[in-house]
Structure formats: structure tokens, C-alpha cells
Amino acid sequence: MGIRIKIFSGFLVLSLMLLVAGLWSIYELNSIGSSVQSILEDNYQSIHAAKIMKEALEREDSAILLLLLGKWEKGREIINSADSLFNEKLHFAMNNITIPGEHIHLEAIQADYATFKGLWERPIVGTNKEGDLDWYFQKVHSSFLAVKTSLNALINLNDERMYETATALKNRSKRAIVPGIVAIISALLFTFIFSYLINYYIVNPIIQMTKSIDLFKEKRTPFDAKIETRDEISDLASSIEHLCLSIKHRESR
């Protein structure tokens, strides 16, 4: 095999190690980017929506207390705006199902909220419910708590997924770094081996040949260089040997 191919193969090996490690790191970094995006888009937005639903629910609960106190106008105003906010965020969450089992929690929220809403949709002011705190604690508050529990379950589910994704991200970031480290160490080791072989099979024979030519020049010592390989170096050595022989032959005539 020729020297050119040998040297080229050395550089090819080095480039391949670094190239593959680089491409892999880019792939992993890209995956990290996608995971961060997924945390933001999928989990964080669902958590945010659930928190707003919880806030709206609490405002509805406060509004029911106002209705019980007979403040119809103020109570209705708060309850209607909170209800539309709740429904808006529920609709958003229903369209952002990204985790297996998330739809079960959303269906539970939907069902519990329908029960809760059924309690305050009917008139309270001017009916026998006005001022009836027993009715509030027995029916409304327990229904309110049921919706809140379902909302908390949705938040927990998304929290857990966020934690899992963050843990996976940590592993991924390690994966993006490690190939680089391995490639650098391998490349250093390979450079050492490469230079050793270049030195042994290319540089040393050239030095040997130079010395042998010098000896031939000065003392007419026969040209002698031990070449182990069969490449351009051995061809060169053989040509020099022939040259020396022919010079010696010519001189002897």
C-alpha cells in the first residue's frame, strides 16, 4: 500500500472520529432544544391553564358567597367572567393533551365543573337558598373541592412529566458532551500512534537512507537501508541502491 494512501487513511480516521462525534453532539443538542420546547409547549402551558382555572374557580366560589349575601349584580358579574375564563382555559387544555392519561383528568374536571356549575346556574338571590350557609357547605363547597382536586391532579401529572423530561434532559446534555470528550481523547491517542508509525515507517527509513548515501559518498560503503514496507520508500531505496551500484560499477571501469 502506498504512502499516500497510508497518510490519507490516518487523516481520514481522525476526521471520521471527530466528524461523527460532532454530528452526534449536534443531534443531541437539537434533541435538547426539542425537549425544552416540549416542556414549554406541552407541560408548562397545561400547568399554567390549570392554575388559571383554579383561580377562576376560586373567584366563582367567592361570587357564590356574594350571591348568598344577596348581592346579585356583583356576584353575577364575577361569576360570569370567571366562568368564561374557566371554559376558555379548559378548552385550551383539552386541545393540548400531550401526556397519556391527561384526557382522563380533563374529563373529570369537565364533569366536576358541570356539577359545580349546575349549583350556581339556577337563581340563588330571592330564593330559599339565599343566606343558607348549610346548603353552601354541604353542596357547593364539596363540589368546589372536587373540581379543585381534579385540577390539582392535572397539575401534578404535568409536573411529574416536566421532572421526567428535565431528568432526561440532564442525561441528554451528558450525551451531547461525552462523544466530544471521547473523540478528543481518541484523536489525541490516535495522533500519537499515527506519528509513531509515520516516524517508524517513513521518517526513520529516510534518515537511514540519507546516512547510507553519505557513507557511500565518503567511503563508498555499499548502500544499505532496511526497509520493512513495500511502498514508495522501498522503491526509492531500491533505486538508490541501483544508482550506487551503477556508480561503483562505472568507477571500477
Binding site: I5, S9, V13, A21, V182, S186, L197, E228
Partner: peptide, 19 residues
């Protein structure tokens, strides 16, 4: 795959150079 690549490169290279 990357481990295999490194093993192959370190394994094949001396075969190319060393008779």
C-alpha cells in the same frame, strides 16, 4: 455504533501501516 467505529478505526489502521 460510535464505539464500534472507534474500535474499527484503531483496529484497522495498524493493519494498513504495519506489515
Amino acid at each position: 455504533l460510535y464505539s464500534a467505529l472507534i474500535s474499527i478505526l484503531f483496529g484497522v489502521f495498524p493493519l494498513i501501516f504495519v506489515p
